[in-house]
């Protein structure tokens, strides 16, 4: 009997594994495309040369190494971490609208970074992720507390409304900081719209291991997230320690959000869009949802960034603007369809 069940599951497993390989292939293809396209199109031969034998007097090699490679890597890290954070939030809260941007985590993280820069002059990229994490955690706890205290409890509606309110408040406070000392914040203006243009390899090398660690833990916990998605009581009945698990997952979400903010500023709606797309194809089994979210999220942000850099070249639009233009209609659709 058991072996028969295993057999039944086998084709699914096989096709999903093939799909993972295919998405990795698509992602690497987009990576190459991202490196070669831009204000100065570069051929794949040049690309290969610059990656295999880097020559720091060659102008084209410099473009790839100093501008495009960091940007592509950061896009992948940000896309993967935000998508996985969104997937975990939607799974745990059983809330189709949950994501780092809707529930105010991105606003909290960016507010903390702005405060750190404005009041305490902390400019070192070493501290940025941790300050962002502090802000994201505070915002998350605040939004959760308000929604839980509101009549009806932490429903989709209450969570979304308090998230929107906290985001609005933090945005206003950020504007006050900006107006109070305009010169310091000139660089931040672009960062606050979620831009990948200032990416550096240095901060990527510092933050990437943290992202990888958090993603690995998320994959390890994925089986329990599936169970948690069935509801607290069922999860408890199946022997999951729900409270401890929720705290662990919240920590992962906060770390992932903070890392993405430290790398690229608040890039909205990625964490909302990708998990929905993935669940539409894969279903609610988080053992597959989380890896797919990481890969497709990375591919998604790479392609968005290609559009952002090329559509009005040589100028560019901030990546966060394009993700919002894609993501907000999906939000409206979800409110219309999923919320009864």
């Amino acid at each position: 009997m058991n072996s028969k069940l295993e057999q039944l599951k086998q084709p699914e497993k096989l096709s999903y594994s093939l799909a993972v390989i295919a998405s990795v292939a698509i992602c690497s293809l987009l990576f190459m495309l991202h490196l070669s396209l831009g204000a100065k199109p570069l051929s794949y031969a040049v690309l290969y040369q610059s990656l295999s034998s880097f020559d720091n007097t060659n102008f084209n090699h410099m473009i790839i190494h100093n501008i495009r490679l960091p940007r592509a890597l950061v896009a992948m890290a940000v896309g993967a971490s935000l998508s996985v954070a969104g997937a975990i939030m939607q799974g745990v809260t059983r809330n189709p609208l949950a994501s780092p941007s809707v529930l105010g985590l991105l606003a909290g993280a960016s507010f903390a970074v702005v405060i750190g820069l404005g009041l305490f002059d902390i400019t070192s990229p070493l501290y940025t992720p941790w300050i962002a994490a502090l802000g994201a955690a505070t915002a998350a706890i605040l939004v959760l507390a308000i929604a839980t205290a509101a009549p009806g409890g932490a429903t989709t509606l209450n969570l979304t409304l308090s998230g929107a309110a906290i985001s609005a408040l933090l945005a206003a406070l950020i504007s006050v900081m900006q107006l109070a000392n305009e010169d310091d914040f000139d660089d931040l203006r672009e960062w606050l719209t979620g831009s990948l243009s200032g990416s550096s390899l240095q901060s990527f090398y510092y933050i990437a291991p943290i992202v990888l660690l958090a993603l690995t833990v998320a994959v390890l916990l994925s089986r329990k997230i599936t169970v948690l998605g069935m509801g607290d009581e069922i999860a408890k009945g199946l022997g999951v320690k729900t409270f401890g698990l929720k705290v662990q997952l919240l920590l992962i979400v906060i770390v992932l959000t903070a890392c993405s903010v430290a790398l690229a500023g608040p890039v909205g709606f990625v964490g909302l869009v990708i998990p929905h797309v993935i669940r539409f194809f894969v279903g609610a089994d988080y053992r597959w949802v989380i890896p797919f979210c990481a890969i497709i999220g990375a591919a998604f942000l790479l392609s968005v960034d290609i559009v952002a850099r090329t559509v009005i070249s040589p100028q560019e639009i901030s990546t966060g603007i394009i993700t919002a233009i894609i993501g907000a209609p999906l939000f409206v659709y979800l409110v219309k369809m999923k919320l009864r």
Binding site: L97, L157, T160, L161, A164, T193, G268, F269, S318, G320, I321, I322, A324, I325, G327, A328, P329, F331, V332, V335, K336, L339
Partner: peptide, 15 residues
């Protein structure tokens, strides 16, 4: 909620 979604969309285009 619909309004919040629509205003996010419009703000992105304005930005």
């Amino acid at each position: 909620l619909l309004g919040i979604g629509i205003s996010a969309f419009l703000s992105a285009i304005t930005t």
